[in-house]
Computed example of a mutant assay.
Amino acid sequence: MSTPHVFDTAIALQPQGDGVFAGSTSPAYANMIGPFGGITAAQVLNAVLLHPDRLGDPIALTINFAGPVADGPFTIRPRAARTNRSTQHWTVELLQGDEVLVTATVFTAVRRDTWTGDESQMPDVPRAPEVPVTPRHGVEWLRRYEMRFLEGSIPAKWDGAVRDESLSRMWVRDHPPRPLDYPSLTALSDVFFPRIWLRRATFVPIGTVSMTVYYHADAAQLAAAGTSHLLIQAQGQGFGGGYFDHAGQLWDEQGTLLATTHQLVYYKE
């Protein structure tokens, strides 16, 4: 019997009845304080995916981090707020004790066969095998990913140098490799380090407030990607008043746009 992938162990949930699930944070995805936000988002999405009343596949997820998640057990409560013929709207809460720490909405739907076209095109970059693996240092969750930076890596020196832009591009996949699916795509949408660090080369405290992922690929397209690398990029948009946002895109090796993401992050001077 094969050992489960560390990601699958981390997002595993146990039904508690009445559509409620129990889970726990994973030391393998530990961040500086609490868990990596991407794994929490994947756990929240997985609760909807496991719910017996789910209709269709994920189209959009918005997760709001209302408070810090402590290491240890938690409860996730997904609820279908409305179900139509081919669409479904979910509200989700993650709790530790009686305290709500995460709120989320998930939109699922049965996809239809329609015209398809992407305006967001994958940039012309060297293929993943041509790019060296970037050494992984620091917090534990970084060891769960194979990253190959093309540009916009974390600053080599925290010298306060101000850049004109905060664009990062890299090839990335789970480490060890794992077949792509909706939970892993969700976590991969959060592997970007804070844009404020790249824009100013200053190590300021940060915290993600809200993250949205739009899923452009169906389950068959994700399965076709298999364990190959994804090309991902992110760039900041507005900075000020203690908050900034970034927009990001994720493509498979064939240039298919799999997901887009938007994130709002708190920072402190």
Rank of each mutant, 00 (worst) to 15 (best):
P183T: 07
H51F: 06
V20N: 02
G240L: 09
S168F: 02
D118G: 00
A156D: 10
H246A: 11
G117C: 05
P126L: 04
A225L: 07
H137K: 14
T256R: 15
G56D: 03
G37H: 05
S189A: 15
I39M: 08
S184Q: 13
T62A: 03
V131Y: 03
P15L: 11
E253G: 03
L188F: 01
D174G: 07
Y214F: 10
Q237A: 09
A66N: 12
P126R: 08
P126K: 07
T103C: 00
G138H: 11
P78K: 11
Q254N: 14
T208W: 04
V209Y: 08
S210M: 14
I196Y: 02
S228M: 06
W90E: 01
A80L: 08
K157D: 12
G226I: 12
A80R: 12
P15T: 13
A66S: 08
V172G: 02
R79E: 08
F203S: 10
D190E: 13
D57P: 02
P179L: 15
R77M: 11
H216A: 07
D71Y: 01
P4C: 05
L142E: 09
P126F: 05
D124F: 01
L13I: 13
D190P: 01
A104P: 03
G34Q: 08
F65P: 02
G236M: 07
I232D: 00
D53Y: 06
G255H: 12
P179R: 15
F107T: 12
Q43S: 03
V6P: 02
Q121V: 15
P194G: 12
A247T: 12
M32H: 10
G255C: 07
E140M: 11
R127Q: 06
G226K: 14
A66L: 14
V102N: 02
H51E: 10
E151S: 13
F239H: 09
S120W: 03
A41M: 10
G238W: 09
D174L: 15
P194D: 04
S166E: 04
P73I: 07
P132C: 00
I59F: 01
L250C: 06
A161V: 14
P179T: 14
Y214P: 01
P15H: 05
P58E: 00
Q237R: 15
N64R: 15
V44I: 15
A47W: 07
A42W: 06
A60K: 13
A81T: 13
A28S: 05
Y29G: 04
L167M: 15
F65L: 11
L61C: 03
E140I: 12
T256S: 11
S228L: 10
T105H: 11
F244P: 02
N84A: 12
A234Y: 00
T227C: 09
P58I: 12
G72P: 02
D98V: 11
Y215D: 02
P4L: 11
H229A: 05
T261Y: 01
G23W: 04
L264Q: 11
T87E: 07
E140T: 15
Q14N: 10
T103H: 13
L95Q: 14
A10G: 02
V209L: 15
R111N: 00
R178Y: 05
Q249T: 11
W141K: 12
T261G: 02
E165F: 06
F203W: 13
A80C: 15
T114C: 00
